[in-house]
Write a protein that binds this DNA or RNA. Structure first.
Lengths: 125, 125
DNA sequence: CTTGACCTTCACGCCGGCGTCAACCTTTAG
DNA sequence: CTAAAGGTTGACGCCGGCGTGAAGGTCAAG
């Protein structure tokens, strides 16, 4: 399929697909006229990429991680076991980030309930 | 106190403090020689700013929100109760983000354990 | 033949929170 | 007097994931 079709099937812009290629995350074949030619698996690949990016993993990281993933990223290709340490650090990093966000969320929730109880005292609607 | 002292007391760079002023988040007095003169409360103010930024609130938003906060941001000035809805949206946003990260963390953990169990099968050390 | 939808490769723009010069003034210590 | 350690105002840089042209080739329909 050409870039437009993958674009609509994967739900990302053509620019994004070209960017992913530029970053080494996709390697589409080329038609005789120079057009990019994507395979069906690239739809899955894009989903994996989006998943990683959504997690705060950058394209450099993703480039190393992607070849080690199959399905939707729930498995590791045996040959990539040496990346486990890196994965662990990344997981720790994410856990840290989650903890930060959770602290903020808790604080926000505190503000909200405090504000709400004081407002309902004055204006219970 | 001058900028250097606030910098070390608040744990942020001088550049950051000037930036906050530029964004209208701090309004230090000026000494006769032009130096910025901060009050003790500005230490708290910086903490509040950092809290909001950590919450994903940008400086424009923070400029509106800050006058409504006291303490470390755990309370709202009564007059600003209309900000509650905004905080709620922000909290939902953060919760979403946390869920995303948690999904990825889970996936990463799955990859790690899968890789580890397959490697220990071959090389139990 | 022309139109228009699609494709191609540059290549600059943008956001947001600062880092990091540069060039200069002020104050204190020796 | 001089050096060092502060302060001041610009103003450009950076990251990362694209958006958004510009300037052109390709291809099928009318």
């Amino acid at each position: 399929m050409k870039i437009g079709e993958l674009s609509s099937r994967a739900g990302v812009s053509s620019r994004t697909l070209r960017y992913y290629e530029e970053q080494g995350l996709l390697e589409p074949a080329r038609l005789p006229n120079g057009y990019r030619s994507y395979s069906d698996q690239d739809v899955e690949q894009v989903r994996r990429i989006r998943f990683l990016l959504a997690a705060g993993i950058n394209t450099d990281m993703a480039r190393e991680v992607l070849p080690c993933m199959v399905d939707d990223g729930s498995f590791l290709v045996p040959a990539c076991e040496d990346l486990v340490a890196e994965f662990e650090r990344e997981e720790a990093h994410i856990a840290e980030r989650i903890a930060e966000l959770d602290a903020v969320r808790t604080a926000l929730a505190g503000i909200i309930t405090a504000a709400r109880s004081s407002s309902t005292r004055n204006a219970p609607k």
